[in-house]
Design a protein around this nucleic acid. Sequence first.
DNA 1: GCAGACCTTCGTGCAC
DNA 2: GTGCACGAGGGTCTGC
Length: 512
Amino acid sequence: MAQSSTQQRGRTPLMRQYYKIKERHPKAILLFRMGDFYESFDDDAKTVSRLLGITLTERNNGDADDVPMAGFPHHAIDSHLPKLIRSGLRVAICEQTEDADESSGKVVNRDVVEVVTPGVSFHDQLLNPKQSNFLAAIHFGTGRDKDRIGFSFIDATTGEFSVTEAGIDQIQDLIQTVAPSEVIVDKRRTDRLQQHLREIPFTVTEQEDWVFKYDFAYQTLLEHFETHSLKGFGVDDMDLGVVAAGAALYYLGETQKGKVPHVRKIKRYSKDEHIALDPETKRNLELVQSIQDDGHEGTLVRPLREVDRIQHRLDAVEAFVDDRELRTNLREELGRMGDLERLAGKVATGRASPGDLIDIKHPLHRLPEVLTLLGDADTDALSIIEEKLSACPDIVDQIQSALVDDPPAKISEGGLIRDGYSEELDELRTIAQEGKDWVANLETEESERTNIPSLKVGFNKVFGYYIEVTDTHAEKVPDDYIRKQTLVDSERYVTPELKEMEEKILTAEEKI
DNA sequence: GCAGACCTTCGTGCAC
DNA sequence: GTGCACGAGGGTCTGC
């Protein structure tokens, strides 16, 4: 709902900025970055406070009424965000887009950088490593197509993107087969969705009707894939499907602010390729997990229908049954590999952590072994796979030469880049290390100079480097020591030289 | 105009 | 090991 100028009047600049951004995301909880905190206001704050169990307080708002507020430190988002999303909410994450130092005393610029929803999330805490997380779009036909639908589904983390068309009576089958976490639908057609589903085990997100216009959807797909038509993907003839696919891709782009370069193709999905299984059947056949311990994994969620493909799969299975060594070795190799598809998605969207990059290197490093095993197999069913895969040696080399083997959890912690990769970085590290060596020697030198055997040099985040002397030796403290802190049985001091070296070390580490 | 207080939660340092 | 105090970084208000 648009805020009138009357409503905006009297508010502080910060709250005017907040409501302006909130206007663009009325259906999402807006997490508003304020320094080291994510803060929520107004009705959002009441919801956040209730769901996260955190204090609901208030923030002043100029001449307008105080605004309800609830917040948490930015580093706690990984634990709080999943609770909000699992409650079925959408969360818009608003970050500061400039440094406070550059804002000339004004409120810093802010903007939403990501909208997290049940069907669109890159956060590990919200994803099941064993399952795809699909966003689906359904477009209901009209006129002569009134009994048909376009159906598209996309996994934001891997870029897997499919489209199909079906009779309206097959919605239930499609939903059960794909099992999306979220379905987007034309807001005028929500009732039809409900009419054709026995239950709705996903979040329904309504979109404006223009999102489901053919021309808009088709153009969205062409612009994304940078093509003149969709013929190359084999989906050009699916008018209803194209609308659903365009709507799904548009929604994904909106939530990720266009950062979805890893969605590089769309494929035609044929429901006839697979047998639809309802949740009860999957459970009873223990295809996904065992009934007893909920832990055993299954792989036959989408059984094939085509005889040729079934035969091809059986050939591969037979090869493994006949060749125990191949089976054991390949199982061992694959067991060491992570989820490359999802990791590649993280890299493409700029979300990869240092650990993710190393997790990419390890499976790629082992891929030649896998390719050799597949190539040596005595069946076309496996050697075809070998021909399709590349070990990407250039990527492995680059990661190997640039990154350390045991990276920090966050880039901000430093120590990610390998020595020798960057001359400038090596120089800064040398300055920092030499400074630390100087500080380390200082303890011995000062202990001898002052004749205080218990003298210690330490560091903490509050006071930086300091020299600690117990009260027993207080009378021996030299005149050039500057007192900084008093403890129960000791005093802490600094010297001009120590402060100068601290500045050198910290400046170098900041640049690193 | 300036300094200090305030406001959510959480990690850290310190005292005991 | 436990409990307390503080600071993280924004923006705003209050008091001098």
